[in-house]
Structure formats: structure tokens, C-alpha cells
Design a binder for these strands. Structure first.
Lengths: 131, 131
DNA sequence: CCTTGACCTTCCCCTTGGGGGAAGCTTTAC
DNA sequence: GTAAAGCTTCCCCCAAGGGGAAGGTCAAGG
């Protein structure tokens, strides 16, 4: 299984797969005689695992940690749950920050006529006028 | 007014102020004979303007565009409102993406005992088992 | 007068998660 | 035999600065 086939099998790009290997996130691929990377189904599973962690918003480093836990028979579910809860906390903070921006922006934007005049409460607000 | 005083006046770091100047976001500071940057109240206002756009989640480039509109007497409020609405749209999309992650994560995490056992539905999910 | 500490300057490397593309090899298909 | 496609490594690029080095300047104190 070449890298382009691994890419097709995982939905990742070849570039991304090389990057994950170089970052030590997944086990390095075997090499065939010509130097090409060769992928087993175990590699594919690792790549898919990381893809799922990424889609849930985990960083690559967190994904790597989770993969190690997944492969460690001595892990405890408490360790895993802790990481997940911390991550949920971070997501929640990000949502709150974005909500605050939106809440600050919406009423000002609604006040703006959006016409051909140059008078604009959005600009006034950003300029510190009409505070 | 030196850069550290401008920093104190705006709440930005000196590094950030230099960066904004180098990126062409704000007008370059005057230089005194020793080469030190010198800031007028107009500069301070520009820096504060950009700081407000940043705190509302606008990119530096968007902040620069908004500052140019603010200084352009021929602007229309429609232009400004358009940019603001696009930005709100982006924020909304980000919130939705984060909400989706949280919604996907929460039920799995709740199923996890978080004890000393290695059995863990979070790991199962990430591994594609018990899908 | 001289020194020391606090400024200031530019410069380069670092972060995240890859994308784009060059240079050079190999393999595949016709 | 040759051309296209695939693979390799390598380096530069993005956002928004932070950290810190090397070197010039300025103000205060002994």
C-alpha cells in the first residue's frame, strides 16, 4: 500500500500523512526497496484514529497522546476521560469567546443603515466614538 | 511618546505595535534623531482602532480594511456593514463547528466510567470500534 | 566622568497544521 | 524507448505575534 493509497483509504492527503509521521504522531511507515513508504492496516488505523481526534478538535499533540493511551493496555479510563474533559472545557471557552464577539457585534451592525451615506455606527464604535 | 508609552496607552505590546507597522496595518511612526519611534495621538487612535477590531475577532487584514474605510470620507456604510456581516457569518460558522464537536464528544465522555479500568468508550469511539 | 540599568533598534527563530512547488529518482503504460 | 505519473526530500508560505540576541542610546547615581 503506497502513500497515495493510504491517503485514499484514510481521506487524508499524502502531505498530511508524511507530516504526521515526521511529527511522531503515528508510527513511521515501512519502506520498500525503492524507498517508498508502505502502509499496513495497522498504519491505516492509526491514521484514521488521528483523523477522528482532529475532527473533534483535538490538537495533533493531544491526538498523539490519545493514540498512545489507546495502545497502552495499562491505561485507565480516568486518564482518557480527563483529557477529553479538558478538551471540552477548551472548546466551551472558545465558544464563549466567539459568542461574546457576536453579541458585541450584532447590535452595532443592526444600527447601521447600510446605505450610500458615510455615517456609520460600526465605524464610530471601532473609533471609540459614541462609546 | 516612545513605543513603550504607546504600548501603555493602547494596551498592546511594543512587539505588536512594531508588527502592525511592518505589516502596513497602521501608519508608520515618525522617527526621532536617534531612530526611536515617536507616536502622536493619531497613531494611538489607529492602534486602538485595530485593537478593537482584533478583540471582535477580525483578522489584521480585515482590521486594516476597516481602518481604511474609517479614514475614507467617500466610504459608504453599506461597505462597512457588508464586511461586518461577512465576519458575523464566519463567527457563526466557527461556533457551529465547535458546537458540533462538543455535541459529538459529550455523550461519549458521559459513557466513560473514568475509573481505573482500561475499558473506555472514548478510546473505542476514536478507534472506530463500537461505532 | 563613567558606569549601570533601562530603553530602543533590527534580525532571526519558534509556534500550528499542513499546502505549494522544485529537483531528482522510480515505476508504469504505451 | 519514452512520457506520464508517483515517490522522495527540501525549502518557503500562511497568522499573529513571542522570545531573545546583538548592538546603539539615554538617564541617573557615585
Amino acid at each position: 500500500m503506497n502513500i497515495s493509497q493510504a491517503a485514499a483509504a484514510t481521506g487524508l492527503s499524502a502531505k498530511t500523512i508524511r507530516y504526521y509521521e515526521q511529527q511522531g504522531v503515528v508510527a513511521p511507515a515501512e519502506r520498500s526497496d525503492n524507498g517508498y513508504r508502505t502502509y499496513s492496516s495497522a498504519h491505516i488505523d492509526e491514521l484514521k484514529f488521528i483523523k477522528r481526534t482532529r475532527s473533534l478538535g483535538f490538537s495533533l499533540e493531544e491526538g498523539r497522546d490519545l493514540l498512545r493511551l489507546a495502545q497502552d493496555p495499562n491505561r485507565t479510563s480516568a486518564e482518557v476521560k480527563n483529557k477529553a474533559l479538558e478538551h471540552i472545557e477548551k472548546i466551551t471557552e472558545q465558544i464563549e469567546a466567539l459568542d461574546a464577539m457576536r453579541a458585541a457585534l450584532l447590535p452595532i451592525v443592526e444600527q447601521c443603515q447600510g446605505d450610500e451615506s458615510n455615517e456609520c455606527p460600526i465605524i464610530d464604535q471601532l473609533s471609540g466614538r459614541s462609546q
